[in-house]
């Protein structure tokens, strides 16, 4: 596992305490897991994702990500309806390790209330949380 200083946390994202990230693009929100999360998990072997159209509330578990010897639940950063899932992860779950913020995105949602993003962490707050834990 890497030191926190060796990991990457883009400025323009929102983060959750459970290590998901959220990015706003054209009014929709893309969701994935942070570099820290993928590093902690190790080689990701499987991602269980919801279907398009599924509705979730902020904090709901929407799927799981599995490494060889661990399973983590994925939690919704904000309310929303799933409009797209990253199908390529079914055959290439390693994208979560290789490119957590780009090719390894998990979901795109239509937010129920985008202002909820302001209630979760920005990069600095997330880094602070990681360093303190």
């Amino acid at each position: 596992m890497k030191e926190i200083s060796e990991l990457d946390f883009p400025e323009d994202l929102y983060y959750t305490e459970e290590h998901e990230w959220a990015r706003v693009t054209d009014g929709n929100v893309t969701i994935g897991i942070s570099d820290y999360a993928q590093d902690q998990l190790g080689d990701v072997v499987f991602v269980e994702m919801p279907a398009s159209g599924d509705q979730f509330k902020k904090g709901d578990a929407f799927g799981t990500v599995e490494s060889v010897k661990a399973v983590s639940e994925l939690y919704m950063p904000i309310d929303g309806e799933v409009i797209r899932v990253n199908q390529t992860l079914e055959d290439a779950p390693e994208l979560l390790n290789q490119s957590p913020y780009a090719d390894g995105w998990i979901l795109e949602i239509k937010p129920g209330d985008a202002s909820q993003l302001e209630t979760i962490l920005n990069r600095d707050a997330y880094l602070k949380m990681l360093k303190e834990s």
């Binding site: 499987f46 599995e66 490494s67 060889v68 010897k69 661990a70 399973v71």
Partner: peptide, 9 residues
Amino acid sequence: LATREQHIR
């Protein structure tokens, strides 16, 4: 596929 099993899940 041990993540299905009791010792992990």
